[in-house]
């Protein structure tokens, strides 16, 4: 593969971004999905709708509003400045925040479905055996929902790798900081360097295929 150093840099940054985002989404998404799967609250509907919204909005639109909200005059920007974090647009952590929002439904929805499929019985059984709530969750729910965790993790990771509109809008295309593979690829296309574009696209496709294959292959064999 004749990838340029810039290509490798963009690929490494993409992998780093997707990994960090997926890790954060596991932490944030799991309790949220659990709550959505169990709650009788009347907030269940509105919260589910909000979680699904990023699927509806065009990514560049999400990016544009994040740019405004996190900018120096936006509420988010004023908050991050007050917290001493500075402004997030055009930084790696800005992309992380945007990607967490953007990929949230891809984490929460499979997890929620997996939790709902487990039902109450295994938990009630564990409770009668005096397992504490956290104990029940980690030793009963997590193993039973393993395929759900796998699907959710893969979808969130893949979705972040393929993300384009949001990062383009919020990232400012800074090498090593916000120029991920999809943006680098777009630059090639726009600069009429179709050969460069094809190379990078091929690597992205092969990489993504292999990741998806390992996960899905393992999933069928586990059943």
């Amino acid at each position: 593969m004749n990838l340029s150093p810039d290509d490798w840099r963009a690929l490494a940054l993409t992998a780093q971004l997707a990994t960090v985002v997926t890790a954060i989404l596991f932490v944030v998404g799991t309790p949220l999905a659990w709550w959505l799967a169990r709650t009788q609250s009347r907030w269940r509907g509105p919260v589910s709708a909000v979680v699904a919204l990023p699927i509806v909005l065009p990514p560049t639109v999400i990016g544009f509003y994040l740019l405004i909200a996190l900018g120096p005059n936006g509420p988010g920007g004023q908050l991050t400045q007050a917290m001493g974090l500075g402004l997030l647009p055009f930084t790696f952590w800005g992309l992380v925040l945007a990607s967490v929002i953007y990929s949230l439904p891809f984490m929460v929805q499979p997890l929620q479905a997996a939790f709902e499929a487990i039902g109450r019985r295994p938990l009630e059984a564990a409770a009668t055996l005096r397992a504490a709530p956290l104990d029940r969750f980690f030793h009963v729910v997590v193993p039973l929902a393993r395929p759900g965790f796998l699907t959710a993790g893969v979808l969130a990771f893949a979705h972040t790798v393929g993300e384009f509109g949001v990062v383009l809008m919020l990232g400012g295309n800074l090498a090593g900081e916000t120029r991920v593979a999809s943006v680098q690829l777009y630059d090639y296309v726009e600069a009429y360097d179709y050969a460069g574009a094809h190379r990078l696209a091929a690597v992205l496709m092969v990489f993504s295929f292999l990741v998806l294959l390992t996960v899905y292959a393992r999933r069928t064999s586990a059943r």
Binding site: G71, P89, M169, G172, E177
Partner: peptide, 23 residues
């Protein structure tokens, strides 16, 4: 320095970066 130069995909985006005050 490159780290202070944000690059819009088009002149429209370069304008958006500046119009929102981020640049």
């Amino acid at each position: 320095p490159e780290s202070k130069r944000v690059v819009g995909e088009s002149i429209a985006q370069a304008y958006q970066f500046a119009a929102t005050g981020n640049a």
